[in-house]
């Protein structure tokens, strides 16, 4: 399956979805003008991946900032991942960023997925 690799920009996050090497990562800043359009390829990739996933999927979220329109799409991504057995979310937040920590906790309450919290 093809790797999805999107370079981050000042208003869109970096995305790496690589089944072969087991790398699943979303990082940087997310405040695109049209978040639905930006995240569609990510949702499409996950949908295809869910047909034949690895036995373990460790999805790392290391966002410095995301806007509210992105938060809706992140929930969609997490909901799709929750359907894939063996998925864990690793939620990174800067050690003094309580809001990002809380955002991760809220997502963990909204989806049935194990979350691991790490600071950077």
């Amino acid at each position: 399956m093809d790797t999805l690799n999107l370079e981050g920009t000042e208003d869109t996050p970096k995305v790496i979805l690589d089944k072969e090497n087991g790398i699943f990562e979303l990082s940087g800043r997310s405040l695109p003008e049209d978040s639905a359009e930006f995240f569609q390829p990510v949702l499409d990739w996950i949908e295809e991946y869910s047909n034949d996933p690895n036995s373990e999927t460790v999805f790392e979220v290391k966002l410095e900032y995301f806007n509210t329109a992105s938060s809706k799409l992140i929930l969609d991504i997490l909901s799709d991942l929750a359907e894939i057995e063996g998925t864990t979310i690793v939620w990174y937040f800067h050690e003094d960023d309580e809001d990002m920590e809380e955002a991760g906790e809220e997502f963990s309450e909204l989806v049935e997925l194990p979350f691991e919290f790490k600071t950077y």
Partner: peptide, 22 residues
């Protein structure tokens, strides 16, 4: 916030209806 994000779909304008709450 959780209520809106759970129920919500993005509007035609691409908003999540969460901006003011946030």
């Amino acid at each position: 916030y959780k209520e809106i994000i759970k129920a919500g779909k993005l509007s035609e304008k691409g908003g999540a209806g969460l901006g003011l709450v946030d």
